[in-house]
Design a protein around this nucleic acid. Structure first.
Lengths: 129, 129
DNA sequence: TTATTTGCAAAAACTTTGCTGATAA
DNA sequence: TTATCAGCAAAGTTTTTGCAAATAA
């Protein structure tokens, strides 16, 4: 974005590995806690900067679901999520991306449609009990 | 939520009127600027508190699209939005709510599905020029 | 060597909260 | 009258940034 050739730093590798190792969709500070178990002296700013970097590189994705904090997903493929309205957990949803939506909206709204984001909301099995 | 019988204050009325009067989807501070033209001594905290109140009452809705700030919509009916990736503007999208999605997800993911949110992303006509 | 990255601290951006006086009913 | 609400200021939460030291290549 603003710099020259990116470097592969240890922090960067560990952040990517840890994010890819979980199926949850952690916020930056949750991932920070996780990464600190391997790199106790890492800073939260480094986690934020690298999550931004990895997102720009297309290696992970930033997901902006409801709630206050942004979350990150080790799977860069576009897919949909469901969020528990009780505990806030975010899971993946098994539904093919609906390509036809973008085309149908392009025809009606005057925007150049680039993509869409679909998020389901519900109560997870644990919270349902 | 925590109080007894709500009152109809002047601030509350003006905030609701102003939000209903625009088709944009202002953030709290944008609406604050707008409302201040009629109530110069209102505080941003009052705007935040009343937007929360009006949302709880189902008179408006809080929309949590991409970007940093939450936005508010004077139309409480569920509908979809499209956001310009260039200027950040949010418009309504003319597409019926896809009820079938919730049912199909209920069958596959174990969640009790309550609803969904669909947001399109694109470039608005002005930014396309 | 040297340009990029880190850690730290400070700032920024956005939102919520405590308190006292004002006000709707 | 009185419980709710507003305004103000302060604090809380999340994210970003400036800078000097560390480091990948």
């Amino acid at each position: 974005m603003k710099h020259g050739k990116p470097r592969i730093t240890h922090q960067r590798e560990v952040i990517l590995e840890e994010l890819k190792s979980v199926r949850t969709h952690p916020s930056a500070d949750e991932l920070y806690d996780q990464v600190r178990q391997r790199l106790p002296r890492i800073s939260l700013a480094t986690v934020y900067r690298n999550l931004e970097f990895l997102t720009d590189q297309g290696l992970v994705q930033k997901i902006e679901v409801g709630g206050r904090q942004k979350r990150f997903d080790g799977n860069p493929e576009e897919h949909y999520h469901i969020r528990c309205l009780d505990c806030g957990k975010v899971d993946d949803v098994d539904l093919d991306r609906i390509q036809s939506l973008d085309k149908s909206i392009s025809r009606t709204c005057g925007y150049k449609v680039i993509g869409h984001r679909l998020e389901f909301m519900g109560i997870c099995p644990e919270c349902s009990k």
